[in-house]
Every structure is written in structure tokens, then in C-alpha cells.
């Protein structure tokens, strides 16, 4: 059995590993020092895990909207996305 059919490339491998590490890190952090839910600017009470998920997914929406609606470089969108994730993690 080979993995050839999955057509791995370096960028996607890095992307998947990064997400996996973020999730593992979050799990370990929460196991060592569980944190409580709180209300930020998001309309629902969230834990850091929720905020990571919301941040990641909404960053993806930002990338897609950028790609669909503008012709500007995607690197700008990437910066916006990272900034957004940080904002959600800190104040969401």
C-alpha cells in the first residue's frame, strides 16, 4: 500500500502538519490547565479551543472571498487571516 494516490506536496503537507500540531498543542494545553468559557466579541461563549476552530475556519472564508472577489495578491489575505485568528484567540 502506497500513499502515491494522495498526491502529497510540500505545501499541503506543511499545512496539514501545522493544523495537526495546533490541535495537539491545544489538547495538551487544555489537559494541563483547563480554561473556562468566556464571552468576547463573538455572540457565543467560547473556550480557547472553540476560538481556534472559529478563527481557522473563518480565515479560510476570508481567503476564499478574497480569491473570488478581488484580483489582489493572496499574501495580503493571508496576513489578514493570521491577524484575524490572533484577534479571535485574544478577544473573541
Amino acid at each position: 500500500m502506497t500513499l502515491e494516490w494522495m498526491y502529497w506536496t510540500l505545501p499541503t503537507a506543511i499545512f496539514c502538519i501545522a493544523i495537526f500540531l495546533a490541535l495537539t498543542g491545544m489538547t495538551i494545553w487544555q489537559t494541563v490547565s483547563p480554561s473556562v468559557e468566556r464571552r468576547g466579541f463573538l455572540p457565543i461563549p467560547t473556550t480557547p479551543g472553540d476560538r481556534l476552530f472559529i478563527g481557522l475556519v473563518s480565515a479560510l472564508y476570508i481567503q476564499l472571498a478574497w480569491l473570488g472577489l478581488t484580483d489582489l495578491s493572496l499574501w495580503i489575505a493571508l496576513l489578514v487571516g493570521v491577524g484575524w485568528i490572533v484577534a479571535v484567540m485574544l478577544w473573541g
Binding site: T27, Q30, T31, P34, G49, D50, F53
Partner: peptide, 9 residues
């Protein structure tokens, strides 16, 4: 029955 890390997620 249990509450564990990441259960809701």
C-alpha cells in the same frame, strides 16, 4: 457521562 478535553469539539 463524562466531561473530557475536547468533548464538545
Amino acid at each position: 457521562r463524562y466531561q473530557f478535553v475536547g468533548d464538545k469539539q
